[in-house]
Nucleic acid binder design. Structure first.
Lengths: 146, 146
DNA sequence: TGGATAGTGTAGCTTTGGCTACAAATTGAC
DNA sequence: GTCAATTTGTAGCCAAAGCTACACTATCCA
């Protein structure tokens, strides 16, 4: 049954991607239009609109027809969590020696499968590296217990 | 378009999971039965059989009705690649301080999104750690250039 | 040699996430 | 204010991946 959780993560990955993009568009452009969301994802606007409909149904987004998409409080909370996790994953990959552009690309897929404990370990790892000013974790770092 | 590659990775993830499990069953049990594959994945046997049909269609598996599933040469090659990558991801997660059981679980999802360059970086990272015999990478490790 | 049990396969349904094609609304330029 | 262009929405199609229910084979044991 090991794969079952990976499968459910796959299911929520799309919603997380949409929410992440919508939040980003709202921040940078002031509005999130269906066409822009679609372009960012590399799908047609019809696909985007249908998926946005599911986000609305699930209480993550709202907005009136022809008036752009907005996030509910739940949507914003999810976006914040997703964004922070994304950055952590990118930072870890880069600390491990992955080139920045590749790290950014791979993080897009990896982030949806990083569980809470793993995220915590990543953060400890990064805190350890930055504490010494080095890009790598110091040898003296204690094993993180949970 | 950053998300497009993550999406296509999601598409091949299931095939990779099946091939990985089939190879493991062939190794440990000598045969891969549909019911066992289904149980490992946490799906019903009907779902497993349908997916195995797709693997056969795509040239990864073969076998006669009621006679178990086998891998083609392509299937075996894929299984080998997937298994090696899986182990690397698990090792990296543990080196970063993720508990073994969690590392095993998260790797199941993460591995499908680890690109070639990232995998190479992971291997360099591990080579650096093991050279000192420590579970962690030494602070003195030089940045891996690419 | 039969049955019972276990395993395999088929049929038909659902949801998701894609697509194209078309229709409707909005916006901007005259 | 009207018309063209853009954007948004709808309809209908497809394949994948899941399910339940039922039918068919194999296998094993009495």
């Amino acid at each position: 049954m090991r794969h079952a959780s990976a499968r459910s993560a796959r299911a929520s990955a799309l919603a997380e991607d949409y929410v992440e993009i919508i939040a980003d568009l709202l921040n940078t452009e002031g509005e999130a239009r269906a066409t822009d969301i679609a372009r960012r994802l590399g799908v047609t606007h019809a696909t985007a609109i249908k998926t946005i409909g599911r986000l609305k149904r699930d209480g993550l987004a709202n907005g009136k027809p022809y008036r752009g998409v907005f996030l509910t409080e739940a949507g914003h909370a999810l976006a914040r969590r997703v964004r922070a996790r994304h950055q952590t994953v990118v930072d870890v990959l880069q600390a491990l020696g992955v080139p920045p552009e590749v790290a950014e690309l791979d993080a897009e897929g990896i982030e949806h499968h990083v569980s809470g404990p793993t995220l915590a370990a990543f953060e400890r790892f990064l805190a350890g590296s930055s504490a010494t000013g080095a890009a790598r974790i110091p040898a003296a770092m204690p094993p993180a217990e949970e």
